[in-house]
Design a protein around this nucleic acid. Structure first.
Lengths: 155, 155
DNA sequence: ATTGATAGTCAATATACTTGACTATCAATT
DNA sequence: AATTGATAGTCAAGTATATTGACTATCAAT
């Protein structure tokens, strides 16, 4: 039931979304391997992408991740251990941790960001800015009208 | 860095896709639990959705799944064990297995399909058919112009 | 008959996630 | 100040899910 020969209407939106995510994931993975970062878990790619240049609160990352805070904690442990991320406690609220990227983390973020950009630019030239803006709106509508108590999307 | 207050342009397409998938996944999960199917692994939801009323070749399911065939094999093992799926060898080619849904599997498929429909219909009334068609095209373009040797999207 | 390829399995191991119980800090009381 | 309730995160143990490598069976083409 797969493939390009099927008519587009017969492929469900959810299937397209699922496969689109795999497409991005594979591209990121390949780019990371090329740059020597072959030890990043799949959800680690999300974390590294979600921590900006200025760092981000762990709690926020956890919410975007969609797993338990314990699982998130372990994931961050391995990212710290492997030299991609560092934890600092927020001086404003000493319960909170802020995540920052190390040098290596920045390299990884750059590599995976470039891979994403390649796909995005390619897509842009192929379907045009209007379609992409429309797609963004559609997905945002889906997400924000069905979101659980305190979750959301990440940059 | 999340939430509805951010401007839409600042949220990357990949993040929206990721979160949209979580949204569908949670809705399906909830619907399945409501109907007594609380023992279906996440990828099992995909499998159950991908096997149609007429059954589907295992090999095809594996390709759509995005994991190794061994992992897929184990997943199917548990779905068989838990009474959702049955395996039959294809008489045309006795290497190949065809997957079919059991009664229980059909119930689960119905429940999760209804959950998906609810989201889809809701989205349709919210953004309109044109936007959804455009979204489909955009995602399909992303997928099919970046697909690895023999993978694709599932219905 | 032989060769090469595809479909799937077996066994062992490594990763990743979950649950339940816990500590620390903060904010709002009294 | 001491108490209460909530939020942020950790610890430890168990379970679930994935990966790798080696294998069997069937088929298609010589």
């Amino acid at each position: 039931m797969p493939d390009a020969t099927r008519s587009l209407e017969s492929i469900s939106l959810i299937a397209l979304i699922r496969t689109a995510r795999l497409t991005y994931g594979r591209a990121m993975r390949a780019a990371l391997v090329d740059v020597g970062c072959d030890d990043i878990p799949s959800n680690g790619m999300f974390v590294i992408g979600a921590i900006g240049r200025d760092g981000a609160p762990l709690s926020e990352i956890i919410r975007g991740l969609g797993v338990s805070k314990q699982a998130a904690g372990q994931l961050i442990d391995t990212l710290v251990l492997r030299g991609y991320v560092e934890r600092d406690t927020d001086p404003q609220d000493r319960r909170c941790l802020t995540l920052k990227l190390t040098e290596r983390g920045l390299d990884a973020a750059a590599a995976q960001g470039a891979a994403i950009d390649r796909l995005d630019v390619d897509l842009l030239t192929r379907v045009g800015a209007d379609h992409i803006a429309g797609t963004r709106e559609t997905l945002a509508a889906l997400i924000f009208h069905n979101r659980e108590p305190q979750a959301a999307a990440q940059a």
